[in-house]
Computed example of a mutant assay.
Amino acid sequence: MTVLINSPHLAAEGVAVLEAAGCDLHFVEAFPPPERVAEAAAEVDAAAIIARQGRITAAVMDAAPNLRVIARHGAGTDEVDLEAARARGVLVTRTPGANARAVAEHAIALIFLMVKDLPGMQRRVAAAGWREGDMQVRDIAGLRLGLVGMGPIGQETARLGQGLGMTVSAVSRHADDMAFRHARRVSNLETLLRESDILSLHTALTEESREMLNARTLALLPRGSLIVNTARGGLIDESALLAALDSGHIAGAGLDVTTSEPPPPDHPFRRHPSVVLTPHVAGVTALSMVQMATDAAECVVAALTGGIVPPDRIVVPSRLDGSREQPSPS
């Protein structure tokens, strides 16, 4: 039971689950290209891959003819070629909810930074300035928070936002009514945009959702709105967002993700005065790393030993598994 982890590290609790089941673990360097993962998968004849950093392509799967399961260390699966896995009968799993609180807290932190203009005030103080006569700090209570996606992260963000006194609305393709305990359900994205002072993205990146925020949709937001993205960079047309920021139509963007990661050194979001950019770390907290590693390890062990993988973790069922695919998180 050889397991390849496309990262140099896995939380000790996850390693313990795998080793207790008799798995043989192999690691590679951080953020390896698919070619390196394919090489390592072939060398060790991987039966399982824990996909933590970097893409898992069809070539990676073909390099490991005995591959049975790809376990995502996280909720998103856009870095795994799902069609290739489906064609080869390889089980693909994810860890929904494992980092929900951490990512929701990060989204709220970005909202605080922008609404209170903390980066701007810090720059002013560092430049020997102080409070100006017309300076005002905005209230968070009463702002309209719009959420795209009501999976575990969206639901937790709604709960925190409501607790801060924001009016929370949301749109989701798959969530049932129970997911909307802390938000008003809106029927479509266009309505949500028109009614949001802050828009926060918590949906999966698919061909349908790619660049869902573009020149047309950004224009639907009220002037002075804020954008938060802790999901995937590809949800936003970055050129359109840059133009909306420069024009002042969008007052600020709090981004934990970008289309290309890391963004090139000259990427305008790195130094834009209206952008708070963090390096895709929203879910990288001590507690969430342990939970994601443990959940992914449990999926691997179950798949390799004939156990039961929790249905909500299955993205693509194996050819030998009768479980149904779960919809993309939103």
Rank of each mutant, 00 (worst) to 15 (best):
A109R: 09
T167G: 10
R101C: 08
Q326S: 13
T157H: 09
I111M: 14
D177Y: 08
T217R: 14
Q136P: 02
L235F: 07
E43W: 10
I50S: 05
P310F: 11
V171I: 11
L25T: 00
Q162T: 11
A175V: 02
M289G: 13
G22N: 04
R313I: 01
A183K: 06
L213E: 08
Q136M: 14
T285N: 12
L199G: 05
H174E: 01
A231W: 04
A170V: 00
G89E: 13
N188V: 03
V275G: 01
L110D: 01
D62K: 14
M150F: 04
T2Q: 13
L164E: 09
A75T: 15
T206L: 12
A71T: 03
S169W: 03
E19R: 15
G307C: 06
G133F: 11
E13A: 15
I5M: 02
V69H: 07
M212T: 13
A104D: 09
P273E: 14
I308R: 15
A297Q: 08
L113N: 03
M178H: 13
M289T: 10
N66E: 12
G142I: 10
S196D: 01
Q326E: 10
V125N: 01
L277S: 08
A293Q: 04
R185C: 07
Q122F: 09
Q155Y: 01
R124S: 05
R86S: 15
H202T: 07
R232S: 00
T93E: 10
P96I: 03
I140E: 02
A128Y: 12
A231G: 07
A158S: 11
N214Y: 09
Q136G: 06
Q155T: 03
A170D: 01
V315C: 12
D237A: 15
E238D: 13
V3D: 04
P222H: 02
A75R: 11
I198R: 00
R68E: 15
D177C: 06
A12P: 05
Q122M: 11
A282K: 12
P311E: 14
N99E: 12
R313D: 00
G154D: 00
L118P: 05
D312R: 14
L110M: 05
T203A: 14
D266N: 11
A46I: 04
Q291A: 15
L193D: 05
I198K: 02
G283S: 09
E261R: 05
H272Q: 02
D197V: 03
T77A: 15
K116T: 02
Q136A: 15
E39Y: 06
G248Y: 05
D62I: 06
T258A: 15
V90K: 05
E29K: 13
A297E: 07
A303W: 01
S187C: 06
I111A: 05
M114G: 01
A109M: 15
A46F: 05
A141M: 02
S247C: 09
H202F: 08
L213I: 09
A75Q: 14
V276T: 12
L4R: 06
L91A: 10
E208N: 13
A240E: 09
S225W: 03
M178P: 08
T258C: 15
E238C: 06
H73C: 02
L201R: 04
L218R: 12
C23K: 04
D321M: 03
G120I: 00
G149D: 03
A102K: 13
P279G: 02
V90H: 08
L145M: 11
Q162F: 02
A204R: 00
P32N: 12
G151H: 07
V125S: 02
A282H: 11
